[in-house]
């Protein structure tokens, strides 16, 4: 009984990465990476620049051979059975590099010739999917970055893959483009595709992914549901009060509120820039906000703003590595 259960579970695993390590020169770029990606889920791969995200992705598509460990796609070893494994993968590694001297359509024809069972109709289908009918016969050199990104995705979808690998898919897109891209990825996953997305932005992963693996310095620190991982960490609350001195004194007296003296160390620059000069950053449970506001107002202190702030990626790391320094 248990055996059948396990094999059923395995059927849904599209990508499995087991203890993959990579040494370049004398340095272990990837020290130990293990995770599974299931059918129909959007899996985030989160880590700061230089953590080994792109190196890992390159190993997933056989651009780099791992020093040890096994990567399987739909049961086929990517580094041994390339022809079989790679036909289940559509990918964009870093930027969508296509031939700029060809038209979008010619590019798709080019890649269609490299895989079995992709005909004219299929090309037209993916063009419709990424909504590029208008410009598909123009030279790629005239495309905007967003259009190249879409052409890259069209190219990745050509072979009807089971796994779509996207490396920082929202990089360089404007806010509207980012939103469209998210909706598009969600739609693909709803159709049963497994999507693997890398990013260095926690917010991006929170908005898009079902599960996430967090990587730092070549090691996977945690794999799990995105919200669970985020909620394990205390939140920050920013207070705007006047007079500032008095407010600070009140907050300091609370036993369950911790004043953060150097907010620049724990918060994003963009948040610090937006919160004004006389803001107090505290670390506390958000349930206490209501009673504290009442207390402050009672004492004649004006409260002009209270903001909840999610921890940054760096914060998540600090917590996970227990103070180990992030480079």
């Amino acid at each position: 009984m248990r055996i059948t259960e396990q094999s059923e579970r395995k059927d849904n695993v599209v990508l499995s990465v087991e203890h993959v390590k990579k040494k370049i020169g004398r340095k272990w770029i990837i020290q130990d990476v293990t995770f599974d990606v299931q059918e129909g889920e959007i899996f985030g791969f989160l880590g700061p620049n230089g953590a080994g995200k792109t190196t890992t992705i390159r190993m997933l598509v056989d651009l780099i051979k791992p020093t040890s460990g096994v990567i399987k796609v739909c049961g086929f070893n990517v580094n041994r059975d390339q022809e079989k494994a790679l036909q289940y993968i559509g990918s964009i590694v870093e930027n969508p590099e296509v031939y700029t001297y060809l038209t979008g359509w010619e590019n798709l024809e080019h890649f269609a010739r490299m895989q079995p069972g992709v005909d004219r109709n299929r090309i037209q289908e993916v063009v419709d999917t990424v909504r590029m009918q208008q410009r598909i016969h123009d030279k790629v050199s005239t495309y905007s970055l967003g259009m190249r990104q879409r052409l890259g995705i069209a190219q990745a979808l050509l072979g009807r893959p089971k796994l779509l690998i996207l490396d920082e898919p929202t990089n360089g897109l404007d806010p509207k483009g980012i939103k469209e891209m998210r909706e598009f990825i969600r739609r693909l996953a709803d159709e049963g595709l497994a999507v693997f997305v890398s990013s260095h932005l926690l917010s991006e992963i929170q908005l898009l992914c079902d599960r996430v693996a967090i990587i730092s310095r070549g090691k996977v620190l945690a794999v799990g549901k995105v919200n669970e991982l985020v909620q394990q960490n205390a939140k920050y609350v920013v207070w705007n009060v006047a007079p500032w001195e008095k407010g600070r004194a009140v907050l300091e007296k609370q036993s369950d509120v911790e004043i953060v003296n150097h907010p620049e160390l724990v918060l994003d620059d963009s948040i610090i820039a937006g919160m004004g000069e006389h803001a107090l950053v505290t670390r506390m449970n958000e349930d206490r906000i209501g009673s504290l506001v009442t207390q402050l107002v009672h004492l004649g202190i004006e409260v002009s703003g209270v903001h909840n702030i999610n921890p940054t990626l760096e914060q998540l790391f600090l917590k996970m590595t227990e103070g180990e320094i992030i480079e």
Binding site: Q82, E83, I89, M114
Partner: peptide, 9 residues
């Protein structure tokens, strides 16, 4: 990268 990630040796 595009060329070598297709199912062709």
């Amino acid at each position: 990268k595009m060329l070598l990630t297709r199912p062709v040796k």
